[in-house]
């Protein structure tokens, strides 16, 4: 459904589906749309109402003319109260900046995630089968092994317990 306002059409169905927004954002968007349509409906409703009062009609109908005169006087003296909408505008602006900030944050988070995913994908694609694995690969994957070997060697421990039993011994002597 596309709602048109001021010549700008917003395809909400596309926004809901294709952008992959969070539940919270979609709910907020829907609430905003609801408010917008409600406001539009009310505006059109009130715009179609008559704004003038036919005082002559009341004069001809009512016996008490003084009341009608008084009503006319009040009506002429009536001035619409001017509202200060600046505070509302300010609130809207802060909301907008907040929304923009949040959107930027989300964009950055998505970018970061995408980069990580790409790195993972490259890792998977470039991975070698197990039988082609080298000792260096294992060391690079787990630097803690290299550290452990360094401490072992510095303590004069050159053999691993349980290695001979498992893999045998090629020593002649």
């Amino acid at each position: 459904m596309a709602s048109k306002a001021g010549g700008v059409a917003v395809d909400f169905a596309r926004i809901y589906k294709s952008l992959g927004l969070g539940k919270e954002t979609i709910a907020a968007l829907q609430a905003f749309r609801k408010r917008n349509t409600e406001a539009k409906r009310l505006a059109s409703h009130y715009a179609s109402q008559p704004t003038t009062v036919d005082l002559e009609h009341y004069r001809s109908v009512l016996k008490n003319k003084a009341v009608v005169d008084e009503a006319e006087k009040v009506l002429k003296e009536f001035k619409p109260v001017t509202y200060d909408v600046n505070s509302h505008l300010k609130a809207i602006e802060t909301f907008e900046t907040k929304a923009v900030e949040k959107a930027k944050e989300t964009e950055q988070a998505v970018d970061r995630e995408l980069k990580e995913l790409r790195a993972t994908l490259a890792n998977i694609e470039e991975a070698r089968p197990f039988d082609q694995l080298t000792v260096e690969d294992v060391g690079n994957a787990h630097p803690r092994i290299i550290e452990a070997v360094a401490t072992m060697v510095s303590k004069g421990k050159w053999t691993v317990p349980g290695y001979k039993e498992k893999f045998g011994d090629l020593n002649v002597l």
Partner: peptide, 16 residues
């Protein structure tokens, strides 16, 4: 050179 042999043994034990 010799630490490489220890390293190899440790890695073998680790991956098994």
């Amino acid at each position: 050179i010799l630490p490489l042999f220890t390293f190899q043994q440790v890695v073998r034990i680790y991956i098994t």
